[in-house]
Nucleic acid binder design. Structure first.
Lengths: 148, 148
DNA sequence: GTCCTAACTGAGAACTATTTTCAAGTAGGG
DNA sequence: CCCTACTTGAAAATAGTTCTCAGTTAGGAC
């Protein structure tokens, strides 16, 4: 268990937090570990549940606080994938976005460099300095189309 | 007042509700009137406040219920513009999206046909039947850039 | 290594937003 | 005009998020 937290300490998120002057505490490392471990569209509640497996005394308030810090540092961002729950998505260097199926709730990640240049161009034309974008396409996924 | 409600009755939203078998009651017409009157990025609370001006006994629960109906019919959609509040956006025929300023909260609507064809093409390639998309570009608007 | 202090923590209270419940009211087909 | 299923507003219930606070801890100074 301690080992997993130490592992998170070496990650990119931990480095960014440290650089910004935040302490690398075990609760925070547990949250970072969960996020970096592939739980990339997690609600605070889900992060909390997964984090407790790594660091049992983790508190829900700390999860919210850590996600706030990541948002403030521009490393994550709240997103809202179809359902009402607030979710957080880690930022990546590449442009990526979501296909959300209205029928089964499946979320598919897609990388598309082309889209990034389109949005950057539009923003630039309007004098807007873009920091990032969030795109969600909703509809019906391939599997749900065939099962109807 | 009654006149404004009658005006809403003639709108596209009212027609769609009627077609779907929903009754055109005064509370619903008040909500539709507010939405069609340009309050296009409104939170339920804001719709409620504006709706009360048109139909004073309007209840908040009815606003939520009406927005749910519109969402169910695909006429509106929850969106989340930077701040934490849930907001609803009316669907339009054209592709439109939002520039959200992180500094002042300004929301700028942009129409861009080019974007629609990009997203449709991508979705099609993946076998996904797109019903719509939601794009938000966040960053700093022109005015906030100069005032710093 | 140990001390120190500002930063951080968990638990639960408080707060806010949303949904549900229910008795009373109403649209609109017959 | 009547009837009935649908709709309503108010209040209670629920769910999600933030705040408060006394105790704990990271990590720089020595």
């Amino acid at each position: 268990m301690e080992q997993t937290l130490e592992h998170a300490r070496g990650g990119a998120l931990a480095a960014a937090l440290h650089r910004a002057g935040y302490k690398l505490t075990n609760p925070r490392l547990a949250v970072l570990y969960v996020l970096e471990g592939g739980m990339c569209h997690a609600s605070p509640q889900e992060v909390y549940a997964a984090g407790c497996a790594v660091y049992p005394t983790l508190g829900l308030a700390t999860v919210y606080r850590t996600l706030d810090i990541l948002t403030e540092l521009g490393l994550a961002r709240p997103s809202y994938l179809g359902d009402a729950a607030q979710r957080f998505t880690l930022h990546h260097d590449h442009h990526h976005y979501h296909l959300v199926c209205d029928a089964c709730g499946l979320i598919t990640d897609v990388d598309e460099e082309a889209l990034g240049s389109v949005t950057d161009e539009i923003a630039g034309r309007l004098g807007f300095r873009a920091r990032g974008h969030y795109l969600e396409i909703y509809g019906v996924c391939q599997r749900c189309q065939s099962s109807n």
